[in-house]
Every structure is written in C-alpha cells, then in structure tokens.
C-alpha cells in the first residue's frame, strides 16, 4: 500500500533498464519500496539493474517483457499482479528512433510507433485493469515534451509520444474514482548526471551495448535527440530530477508532471505558436 505521502511499497517497472526508471526506483527504495519487479527484454543490463537495486535492500526480480509483443502482455503482467498488489507501475519503455532513417524506412518508423504507442496501450490497459481490481495504485507514464507540440525534427517519435500522452490522459479519466490513478510525466531532454554514481554509469553503459546489438541506429539517434538545439537550454534535466519530480507528484497525487517544472509555462506558450512560425523556430 502507498503511505500518506504516496510512497509505494511495491513497484513494477516496464522497461527495466530505463535510466529514469532506475533513478526513480532508487529513490523509492530509500523511502518505502521493498518489492521491485523489473520487466524488460532479458539482457545483461537488466540483470545488472536488478542486482544494483537488490544491493539497496529491495526484493527484486526480473520479468520477461517485450513491448512489441502485445499479445503476451496480459499473461506476463497478469502473473506479476497475481503474486501480490503492485502499488505503482512505471511505464518507462520507449525508443527515440532515428528520425532521418525512419523517414526513409517506414518499417523502422512503425517500430517506434509500436513500441511507444501500441505497446503502451496494451501494457497500460492490462495494468490499469489490475490496479482497478485491487482498488488502488498509480500508473506513472513517461511521456515526453516532444509529444506536446510535435516538431519537424522528431515527429515520428513525437507523434508516438503524443498518442501515448493522449491515451494516458484518457485512461486517467477512465480510472477516476476507481482508486487507481494515472500520472503523466513529461520530461524535457533528459541527460545523465555529469557525475553519475558508479552503478548508474555501469547500467547506462550496458544499456548502450544492448542497444547497439539490437538496432545500431537507435542509440546514435537518441544521442542526436539529446544534443538537439535545446542543448544549452535550462529545459534539460537529469534522470534523478525526473525521479524526484515523480516522487513529489505521487505525494500530491498529480495528474501531470513536467520536468523541469518551467516546461509547463514554456510549452503552454509554444503550443499556440502558429504553424508557419513554429516551422521556422530553431527548436
């Protein structure tokens, strides 16, 4: 059960190697979390992530989960919920894709859409149903500022996040009053801490290695997304800052969280910029 401050005792992460998710799990373990399930594609990085969290005192297990295999979600995730209540689900999987290549290779673009949107729809609905049945719990969805107003530079990723974001908002409304709660988190550009802890660096490195094996372009593209024009802007953030915002959001039972918080104002202005002008903005 969550305590009065929204701190969960059990956590299910979908996308178990996500840096943001792991930063969040670390914070939650320092509060009340004792049970962690890391769902993801089996990899050394996933095992390393589990080992790191275990060392922090949680009971951690990994669960085989592929976002692209929607048909399996009901069974895989159903099993996790059957073992006991899950107080919080963190939907963290997602790929940035490679905008340049994806425009040339529609199937690669579809993969981005299927991972970020379709995969989240099926996994999200399965989790929502389980949370509703247990009468409590938060589904925290990592959306992105990129989905708020889609840019030329990454509209494939952006549109998948726009879909995810809209889906999550609707799901939150559908679950209103059922005890379950959906929180949409919209980070800006997330960069690892400059002086990350040893554990985090190792996990990040492993993620990259896995990424290279699975789709050479993805990591490069992510890097490019990260070094997009927002580079020097104060709107970049770190996994730990996102984690902190998530913990605060849980305490306040927020429905939408922007990280950094100033993005809320920036985006509400940007949202209304006319298209001809928006196209020419250097963002």
């Amino acid at each position: 059960m969550k305590d009065a401050f929204g701190a969960p005792q059990s956590l299910l992460v979908l996308g178990g190697t996500s840096e943001i998710a792991l930063a969040t799990a670390r914070r939650l373990i320092a509060l009340r979390t004792r049970t962690v399930r890391l769902a993801g594609r089996p990899s050394p990085a996933l095992d390393a992530a589990a080992a790191e969290l275990r060392a922090r005192g949680a009971d951690v297990r990994t669960v085989d989960f592929d976002a692209l295999d929607s048909a399996s979600h009901e069974t895989t995730l159903g099993k996790v919920f059957a073992e006991g209540d899950i107080d919080m689900v963190l939907l963290a999987f997602g790929i940035a894709g490679d905008q340049g290549r994806d425009e040339e290779e529609p199937l690669a673009a579809v993969r981005v859409a299927q991972t970020n949107y379709t995969g989240a729809v099926s996994a999200g609905l399965v989790c929502a149903g389980a949370l509703q049945a247990q009468g409590h719990g938060s589904l925290v969805v990592l959306s992105s500022v990129a989905g708020e107003r889609v840019r030329r530079a990454d509209f494939i990723y952006g549109s998948s996040k726009a879909g995810l974001d809209a889906f999550a908002q609707g799901l939150g409304d559908a679950l209103h009053g059922t005890g379950a709660h959906v929180m949409v988190v919209r980070p800006g550009v997330v960069r690892p801490e400059p002086r990350a802890e040893a554990g985090a660096v190792r996990v990040a490195g492993a993620t990259q290695a896995a990424g290279v094996v699975q789709g050479a372009g993805a990591v490069r593209a992510a890097a490019r997304f990260v070094s997009a024009p927002l580079e020097a802007s104060p709107l970049t953030t770190t996994p730990d800052a996102v984690a902190e915002a998530i913990v605060t959001g849980l305490r306040r039972r927020s429905e939408t969280v922007w990280v950094p918080g100033s993005l809320r104002a920036v985006m509400s202005a940007l949202r209304h910029v006319p298209r001809p002008l928006f196209r020419r903005l250097p963002i």
């Binding site: 059960m1 969550k2 305590d3 009065a4 401050f5 929204g6 509703q132 009468g135 409590h136 009053g177 059922t178 005890g179 379950a180």
Partner: peptide, 17 residues
C-alpha cells in the same frame, strides 16, 4: 456502492465496495 475512501486525514484514497 463503489466508493473511494480515505481516513479523516484525506491521504491515500482507495476504492472499495
């Protein structure tokens, strides 16, 4: 009926029959 309940402190709402 199905209701969302809290204690007097109004923290941690959960739903029950």
């Amino acid at each position: 009926d199905t209701v969302s309940l809290t204690g007097w402190g109004r923290t941690a709402p959960t739903a029950a029959l």
